Amino acid sequence: MSDDLISEGADDMQDAGSIDPNSDSAEGAGATDQVIEQGDAVSASIAADQGPSRGTLRDVADSLGISSAVALRALRDQTDIRPRLRERVHEAAERLNFPLEELADETSHRGVVAVLVNTMRNTWISDLVRAIRIELTATGRSAIVVPTRRRVPEYPIAADTDAIRSLVDLGVDGFLMVSDLHDVDSVIEATADRPFVGIGCSRSFVGRFDTVRIDDEVGQGLLVDHLVSLGHTEIAHVGGVGSTVARERADAFQLAMERHGLADHARIEPGDFTEQVGQTAGSMLLRGSQVPTAVTCANDVTALGVLAAARDAGYEVPTQLAVAGYGNTSLSSSGVTQVTSVDPNSDRLGALAAQLLVDRVSGHEQEARDVAVAPSLVARQSTAAGPRAESKRRTRVHVD
Rank of each mutant, 00 (worst) to 15 (best):
A313C: 08
Q355T: 15
G335D: 07
S362G: 11
D343N: 13
L307R: 11
S289E: 14
R360V: 11
A354H: 12
G350R: 10
Q290N: 13
V317W: 09
R287E: 11
T340S: 15
T337H: 15
V358N: 06
V306S: 01
Y315F: 12
H364N: 11
V317H: 06
R287T: 04
G305W: 06
V306Y: 00
V358C: 14
R348I: 05
G288V: 02
A368F: 04
A354Y: 03
S346H: 11
T319K: 13
R311H: 08
V342I: 12
V323T: 03
G278M: 06
L349K: 12
A368Y: 14
E316Y: 00
A298V: 14
A313G: 07
S330N: 03
Q355H: 06
A303G: 01
T293P: 09
S341G: 05
D347V: 09
S334R: 12
Q279I: 00
D359V: 15
A281W: 02
R369H: 14
G305N: 02
Q338T: 05
G325P: 07
V306I: 12
A351Y: 00
S362C: 11
N299S: 10
V358Q: 01
N345P: 08
L352W: 13
R311S: 04
A294C: 04
G327A: 13
A294N: 07
T340D: 05
E316S: 10
R369V: 15
Q276S: 04
T329M: 14
S341C: 06
T280N: 07
V306E: 01
L352A: 14
A353K: 12
